[in-house]
Write a protein that binds this DNA or RNA. Structure first.
Length: 920
RNA sequence: GGGUGAAUAGCUCAGUUGGUAGAGCGCCGCCCUUACAAGGCGGAUGUCGGGGGUUCAAAUCCCUCUUCACCCACCA
C-alpha cells in the first residue's frame, strides 16, 4: 500500500467496477427498499446541494443494500421546462437566432439536441460522488413512458372535473411570456414611492385623493373604493369621478377591502391588473380593462398617447401628465413588496388570460390526512406544520405554461373554440364522435414541469401499467429533499399519488438544510461563492477557480469583488480531497434540518481521517500478512482484544442508531471517534507490545493479529456507506487475511452489534489502564520529558484491584507511558522527592532526580490544586445544602459524597507534595 | 401581520429523559517514538444571547426580551 491514500485514480476505478458488475440494481429477496432521486435538471450540473443530498441517499441505499434489502435507487432526470428553454434561447440569441425565428418544431429539436449534448454531465458527476443509482432504469420526464403517464393523469383529472380551463388573473412573466404559479413568484421588499393623486368628482364639486405605488395602472382603473364605514367618504359612494388622462368617468364604490387608515382611505381599483382589485371588481360588477400587452407595454385599450410604451415608460409619462394637470397631491417614500418571477427576475404582472388549473382543494384533504395519521412522516417533524399550513389554505394550481419545451397539453379545439380533452387526437375524435373533416388544433401550451414531477414515484415504475416494480417498490421508503421544494414537489406528489394509487408516495420525508458558504451566504453564481463539488474532489488552482467564478457573468461589474473574496478564502486554490472526504464532511455537518455552512477546515479534518484509516490498515497488514491470523487456528484474546471488541459493539450500535434516526452527524462522529481514538490511539498501540514481545505466547499473538484484522474489516464495512471508495480499496487488501472471499465490500453484510461479545471487566481494566497512562504522560508532558527518555514510576496507595491491574498490565504501561520500571512503595516507605499525580485512590510518583525541574513541578501542582479547589467548592456547596441532601435521589447524593472524598484525598496529597518540594 | 429555526470555546458545530459543559479546526509547549508530520503526546480556552421563574439542581423545562436567518400572507 502507498504511504497515503490517493483518491484520484482509485475512486473512478472502483465506481466503474461496481457499475459494470451490475451491483447497483435491485437484487436478492430481502424486503424492498426504494428511494427515488429528486430528478436533477437533465442539462444541469451538480452543485453542492445535489452533492449533499446524493451523499445522504447513497448512504441510506448502501446501508440497506448491505443489510440485505432488495434495494432500488431510481435514477432519472427532469426536463425542467422554463430553465432549459431559457438556456437554449440564450444560446440561440448568441448566434443571432431566436426561438420564434426557428419555429416550434425546429426549436424543440434544438432543445433535444442540447439535451443529448449536455445531458451526460450530471450523470458523470453523480458517478464521481459514488452514487450507487440503478443506471439501467434511468428515466427522463419526457420519455415516452412518463409522457404517457402525464397524459393519462391529465385526462383522468379533467374527466373527474379536477382540471378546468378558465380566464383568470394570473401571474404573468412579461419576459418569458408565460403564466407562472404563485409559488414561482418571489416577493422582495424594495424601495418605492407612494403617489397621491387627485381624481376630480364628475360634478365638479371637488376631488378625492387616491394613493398608489403603480401610477401607470390608473389607465385601467374602473372605480375608486372607500370603506363602507368611513364617514369622510360616505357621501361620495355611488357618485362618479373623472379618471384623469382617459376621459372616462368611474364610480366610487364601498368595499370592506379598503383600510381607512392607509393612505388617503381611497383606493383606485384596477381589476385587470391587481389580484385584490380583481376581487373588488367581481363584487361590484366592474369592467375589466386590460391595458397591457404580453410584454407589459401599454395596449390599445389605453388612451392613444400611451400606447406602445413600456410600463415604466408609461409610469413616467402618466406622472408627468398628472403633474402638468396639477393633480399630484404628494409623493412619499414607501417600502413595498415587489413580485418577481423566480427565473426571469422581472416584475410579474397580474394579467387576464386563459389558463388550465388543477382544483387542489379536493385533493388536499387526503394529503393532509396521510400526514396527520402518520402514513407519511416528516423528519424533522416540525416540517409537518409548514406542510399543513400550506395545504389547509391551498390555491388552485395553474398548470399551463406558454412555453414550447414540455408536455403539450392534451386538449384540442375546433374552430368554434370547443375544447376536447383526450389521450390523443384520435381518441378525442372517437370519444366525441367528431367528423373526420373537422379541423382540430392542439392546445399550444405545455404543462408546468412540476406536473410531471408530481407523478415521479409511480410514473418511473411503469404506471399506468401495474408493473412488478410498482408492486414491489411503491410506496417508496423515503424521500430525501430540501425544504425549498416541499410545496412545489412534495405536497403535489402526495396529492397526486394518493389520488391515482390510493397509496402514499413514500413513508418518510427526510428534509435536509441548504448548503451555504463559509460565511453563511447562499451559494449563487452572482455572488461568486459557488463551490463545485468536483473541485473539492479533484482540486483546482486559484487561477482556475477565479476563471470559473468570473466567467459568463450576468453582472460583470462584480468580478473584482468576487476575485478579492476568492483570493482571500482560497489563496492557494483548493486541494484535491477526494469524494470520501467530501461525503464524510456532509454527514458530519448534517444535523437535524438546519442549514450547513460549508467549512473547508472540517473537510480537511475528514480527509485526514481517511488517511488515518488508510495508515491503520497499513500497520495491520504489515503485521499480519503472511502470518497466522487465527482464522482456522488456535488463538487467545488478551485484555486489549476483549476491550476493543467491546468498544466495537458500542460503535456499531451508535452508528446504526444514527442512521436509523437520520442523524448522520452522530453516526459519522461515532465512526470517527472509534477509528481514531479507540482503534488507532489505543488498540494499535496496545497491540505493539504483544506483537513485538518475543516472550509473548503464540496464541496471544495470533489472537492479536486476528483482532487487528477482524476489527479493521468490520470497521470498513461499518464505514462503507459513508466512505465507499477507500473502504473498498482497503477491504480488497484485507479480505483474504480476514477470511472473507466476497467480490466487493458493497455486498458484504452490514455489521450488527452483539451485546454478547461485550466484556465489561475488560472494558473497566482498559479504562483504568488509560487513566494511568494519561496521568503518567501528563507528568511527562508538563515537565517536558522527552518520550525518548524512559522514566521510573512509583505507585503508592491503591487497593488490591489496582495491584492486580498493574501487575497484569505492566508491559502495556511501560510501553504506552514509556516507563523504565514500575515499583509499588512498601507501606511506610518514604519515596524520593517526586512529581506526583493522583488517580482515584492511587498515587503516581516520578522521582525528580535529574528529570524534573523543581519550579516547574511546583507550578504544575499549584495549577492542579486550584482546579481541585474549584471543583471542591462546587461539591461542598451541594452537600452543605440540606435541601439537596433531602431531595435529590440517593444515588446522586452518594456520587457527590464519593466525589468529595476523592477530591479531598487528592487535595491532601497535592498539598503534601507541595510542602515537600518547597522544603527542598 | 402570522409562523419556523437559530444564538454554547477564536471558527464550524454536538449536547439524548434536568445531575461535574464536549468534538473538529485554530492556538501554546514538546516530539521525525519504523502505520500515519494529512502524525504523536501534553496543555489553555466558555456568566451556554439578556432578564425573570419552576426545581435540591437548568445549556436542557416555563415566561419574557434582544439579535439573526428563513417561510407564508392582498395592504393600495
Amino acid at each position: 500500500m502507498e504511504k497515503t491514500w490517493q483518491p484520484a485514480e482509485r475512486e473512478q476505478y472502483w465506481y466503474a467496477a461496481w457499475e459494470e458488475s451490475g451491483w447497483f440494481a435491485p437484487a436478492g429477496d430481502g424486503d424492498p427498499y426504494c428511494i427515488m432521486i429528486p430528478p436533477p435538471n437533465v442539462t444541469g450540473s451538480l452543485h453542492m446541494g445535489h452533492a449533499f443530498q446524493d451523499s445522504i441517499m447513497d448512504l441510506l441505499i448502501r446501508y440497506q443494500r448491505m443489510r440485505g434489502s432488495r434495494t432500488l435507487w431510481q435514477m432519472g432526470t427532469d426536463h425542467a421546462g422554463i430553465a432549459t428553454q431559457m438556456v437554449v434561447e440564450r444560446q440561440l440569441a448568441a448566434q443571432g437566432e431566436s426561438r420564434t425565428g426557428l419555429g416550434r418544431e425546429a426549436f424543440i429539436e434544438r432543445v433535444w439536441q442540447w439535451k443529448t449534448e449536455s445531458g451526460g454531465t450530471i450523470a458523470k458527476q453523480l458517478r464521481r460522488m459514488g452514487s450507487s443509482v440503478d443506471w439501467s432504469r434511468e428515466r427522463f420526464t419526457m420519455d415516452p413512458g412518463l409522457s404517457n403517464a402525464v397524459r393519462e393523469v391529465f385526462v383522468r383529472l379533467y374527466e373527474e372535473g379536477l382540471i378546468y380551463r378558465g380566464k383568470r388573473l394570473v401571474n404573468w412573466d412579461p419576459k418569458l411570456h408565460t403564466a407562472i404559479s404563485d409559488l414561482e413568484v418571489v416577493s422582495e421588499e424594495e424601495n418605492g414611492k407612494l403617489w397621491h393623486f387627485r381624481y376630480p368628482l364628475a360634478d365638479g364639486s371637488g376631488h378625492l385623493v387616491v394613493a398608489t405605488t403603480r401610477p401607470e395602472t390608473m389607465l385601467g382603473d374602473s372605480a375608486v373604493a372607500v370603506h363602507p364605514g368611513d364617514e369622510r367618504y360616505r357621501h361620495l359612494v355611488g357618485r362618479e369621478v373623472e379618471l384623469p388622462l382617459t376621459g372616462r368617468t368611474i364610480p366610487v364604490v364601498a368595499d370592506d377591502y379598503v383600510d381607512p387608515e392607509f393612505g388617503s382611505g381611497c383606493v383606485k381599483i384596477t381589476p385587470a391588473h391587481d389580484f385584490n382589485d380583481y376581487e373588488v371588481g367581481m363584487r361590484h360588477g366592474l369592467p375589466l380593462i386590460n391595458i397591457f400587452t404580453i410584454d407589459a407595454a401599454i395596449n390599445d385599450n389605453a388612451p392613444e398617447a400611451y400606447r406602445g410604451m413600456d410600463r415604466y415608460e408609461a409610469r413616467e409619462q402618466v406622472l408627468k401628465d398628472l403633474d402638468a394637470a396639477g393633480l399630484v397631491e404628494k409623493i412619499e417614500d414607501h417600502r413595498l413588496k415587489v413580485p418577481r418571477g423566480d427565473r426571469s427576475h422581472v416584475v410579474v404582472e397580474p394579467l387576464l388570460t386563459d389558463q388550465w388549473y388543477v382544483r387542489t382543494a379536493p385533493l388536499a384533504g387526503e394529503a393532509i390526512r396521510a400526514v396527520e395519521d402518520g402514513d407519511i412522516e416528516f423528519v424533522p417533524k416540525n416540517w409537518e406544520n409548514t406542510y399543513f399550513a400550506w395545504m389547509r389554505d391551498i390555491q388552485d394550481w395553474c398548470i399551463s405554461r406558454q412555453l414550447w419545451w414540455g408536455h403539450r397539453i392534451p386538449a384540442w379545439y375546433d374552430a368554434q373554440g370547443n375544447v376536447y380533452v383526450g389521450r390523443d387526437e384520435a381518441e378525442v375524435r372517437k370519444k366525441h364522435g367528431l367528423d373526420p373533416g373537422l379541423a382540430l388544433e392542439q392546445d399550444e401550451d405545455v404543462l408546468d414541469t412540476w406536473f410531471s414531477s408530481a407523478l415521479w414515484t409511480f410514473s418511473t415504475l411503469g404506471w399506468p401499467e401495474e408493473t412488478p416494480e410498482l408492486q414491489q417498490f411503491h410506496p417508496t421508503s423515503v424521500l430525501v429533499t430540501g425544504f425549498d421544494i416541499i410545496f412545489f414537489w412534495v405536497a403535489r406528489m402526495i396529492m397526486m399519488t394518493l389520488h391515482f394509487r390510493r397509496q402514499v408516495p413514500f413513508r418518510q420525508v427526510y428534509v435536509h438544510g441548504l448548503v451555504r458558504d463559509a460565511e453563511g451566504q447562499k451559494m449563487s453564481k452572482s455572488k461568486g461563492n459557488v463551490l463545485d463539488p468536483l473541485d473539492l474532489i479533484d482540486g483546482i488552482s486559484l487561477e482556475g477557480l477565479l476563471a470559473k467564478r468570473t466567467s459568463n457573468m450576468m453582472q460583470p461589474q462584480l468580478a473584482k469583488k468576487i476575485e478579492k473574496a476568492t483570493r482571500k478564502h482560497f489563496p492557494e486554490g483548493i486541494a484535491a480531497y477526494g469524494t470520501d472526504a467530501l461525503r464524510f464532511t456532509f454527514y458530519s455537518l448534517a444535523s437535524t434540518g438546519r442549514d450547513i455552512k460549508f467549512d473547508m477546515g472540517r473537510m480537511e479534518g475528514y480527509r485526514n481521517f481517511c488517511n488515518k484509516l488508510w495508515n491503520a490498515a497499513r500497520y495491520v497488514l504489515m503485521n499480519v500478512e503472511g502470518r497466522d491470523c487465527g482464522i482456522d487456528s488456535e488463538y487467545e484474546l488478551g485484555l486489549a482484544e476483549r476491550w476493543i471488541i467491546t468498544r466495537l459493539q458500542d460503535a456499531e450500535a451508535s452508528v446504526l442508531e444514527g442512521i436509523r434516526t437520520y442523524r448522520f452527524d452522530i453516526a459519522s462522529r461515532a465512526l470517527y471517534e472509534f477509528v481514531w481514538h479507540e482503534y488507532c490511539d489505543w488498540y494499535l498501540e496496545l497491540s505493539k507490545p504483544v506483537l513485538n514481545d518475543a516472550q509473548a505466547g503464540a496464541a496471544l499473538q495470533t489472537g492479536t493479529r486476528r483482532t487487528l484484522v477482524r476489527v479493521l474489516e468490520t470497521v470498513l464495512r461499518l464505514a462503507h456507506p459513508f466512505i465507499p471508495f477507500i473502504t473498498e480499496e482497503i477491504w480488497q487488501s484485507v479480505k483474504t487475511v480476514a477470511g472473507k472471499d466476497g467480490a466487493t465490500i458493497m455486498l458484504e453484510p452490514y455489521p450488527e452489534p452483539d451485546p454478547g461479545r461485550a466484556d465489561p471487566e475488560a472494558a473497566a481494566d482498559v479504562e483504568w489502564l488509560r487513566r494511568i497512562v494519561i496521568a503518567a504522560r501528563n507528568i511527562r508532558g508538563e515537565m517536558d520529558i522527552s518520550m525518548a527518555r524512559r522514566i521510573p514510576l512509583l505507585l503508592r496507595g491503591g487497593d488490591d484491584e489496582d495491584r492486580r491491574r498493574s501487575g497484569e498490565n505492566e508491559s502495556f504501561l511501560c510501553a504506552l507511558a514509556r516507563l523504565e520500571s514500575i515499583r509499588w512503595l512498601e507501606p511506610g516507605e518514604t519515596p524520593p522527592v517526586s512529581a506526583s499525580q493522583p488517580v482515584d485512590g492511587l498515587e503516581l510518583l516520578v522521582p525528580m532526580a535529574g528529570l524534573i525541574d523543581r519550579e516547574a513541578e511546583l507550578a504544575r501542582l499549584e495549577k492542579q490544586l486550584a482546579k481541585l479547589d474549584r471543583n471542591l467548592a462546587g461539591v461542598r456547596g451541594k452537600l452543605d445544602n440540606e435541601r439537596f441532601v433531602a431531595n435529590a435521589p440517593e444515588a446522586v447524593v452518594a456520587t457527590e459524597r464519593a466525589r468529595l472524598e476523592e477530591l479531598e484525598l487528592h487535595q491532601d496529597r497535592i498539598r503534601a507534595q507541595l510542602e515537600k518540594i518547597r522544603s527542598l
